[in-house]
Design a protein around this nucleic acid. Structure first.
Length: 327
DNA sequence: ATGGTTTTTACTGCGTC
DNA sequence: GACGCGGTAAAAACCAT
């Protein structure tokens, strides 16, 4: 079990700078007597601080608590305590916590078992194995679905998207695609895929903002899922991003309509291929804003859409060009 | 691994309020 | 002078091979 909340994980070599006797140092041989009453100093069971066991004087409260925050009693706390990483190992499907029945057919004294007993043990082993994998999968699923739910509501995605995500995740689980990947990563990837399939995509960056894992990690998981589960993912239509960005910026529906027009034209003029759809949507909105006399700064759009201003500039010029030609 | 393409980062110059 | 905008070069990220 890695990562118990061990009190001091200081690797300081303690290269003796002890000019001041009363100040407890962090060297390996920590001063363990209280400067106030001379009592023993508790080595820091209370997270992040060391204090005197007899008089309670806090000796050192700056020390970093490297242990995870273990306890969360409800959803809210669970969210807040997100610092908790992965203290258990995902390498084993049950995180190494389950019971195992030894393979030797001997009893606790080392005597051979009777053949009847031996058969019984065989049966127990297989059932134990079945039960173990089954229950671990259920736990896994439960956690993943919780994550999916949390992220989906943070992204304002409707229930049917969650359902789809859950289905994808289940399939991944059934086909044993999980080992080697984190539950969160795959859960996030499932949600991303589901949102895309259901026509209300969220960009990778958006999803990453509510996920516990980094963009890169779940992107890898996503690609993997698409490949292994043969999910057909059509390229995202930039128009699908328009509405959300518009409402983020509190712009009128006129601009929305205009943006979509511009995108249509762009599509015909083949401006789209190979370009990031979010960027195109952002650029179209900027252009539409100019055309409709609803000015928004590039900086604002850039922020709302998570696309750099430079990219917006480049795309919106192209869009306007193509619009001019086709009109 | 590599090369080609796209996006981002950082910086500069110009005009306007 | 700050702000919005445009442009550029180099770095980083992405993707297919």
């Amino acid at each position: 079990m890695p990562n118990r909340p061990n009190s001091q994980a200081n690797d300081s070599d303690g290269s003796g700078d002890e000019e001041d006797g009363s100040e407890p140092t962090e060297s390996s041989g920590q001063t363990n007597t209280c400067p106030e009453c001379g009592g023993d100093v508790n080595p820091g069971e209370r997270q992040g601080e060391r204090y005197c066991a007899s008089c309670g004087l806090v000796i050192d409260e700056e020390s970093v608590d490297h242990g995870p925050e273990w306890r969360a009693f409800n959803e809210q706390e669970k969210e807040e305590k997100s610092r908790v990483g992965a203290p258990t190992t995902n390498m084993m499907h049950d995180q190494g916590l389950s019971t195992n029945i030894g393979w030797q057919n001997k009893d606790a004294y080392g005597n051979q078992l009777s053949s009847a007993q031996r058969e019984k043990m065989e049966r127990l082993r297989t059932w134990n194995e079945r039960f173990r994998t089954r229950s671990s999968k259920e736990r896994n699923l439960k956690q993943a679905l919780g994550e999916i739910d949390r992220m989906a509501s943070a992204l304002g995605l409707p229930d049917d998207v969650r359902e789809t995500a859950a289905v994808i995740y289940r399939r991944a689980l059934e086909e044993d695609l999980l080992p080697g990947r984190s539950i969160e990563g795959v859960a996030t990837a499932s949600l991303y895929a589901a949102a895309r399939q259901s026509g209300s995509p969220r960009s990778l960056t958006e999803v990453a903002q509510v996920s516990r894992v980094q963009e890169q990690e779940f992107k890898r998981a996503y690609r993997y899922l698409v490949r292994e589960l043969n999910l057909e993912m059509k390229p995202v239509d930039p128009k699908q991003y328009v509405n959300r960005i518009i409402s983020d910026l509190e712009m009128s529906e006129d601009v929305g309509r205009r943006s979509r027009e511009l995108l249509e034209h762009g599509q015909k003029a083949n401006v789209h291929s190979g370009k990031s759809p979010v960027a195109l949507a952002a650029a179209a909105i900027y252009a539409a804003g100019l055309l409709e006399n609803e000015k928004v700064t590039q900086a604002n759009i850039s922020e709302a859409a998570n696309v750099s201003e430079v990219t917006i500039r480049n795309r919106y010029r192209e869009l306007l060009e193509s619009a001019n030609k086709t009109n």
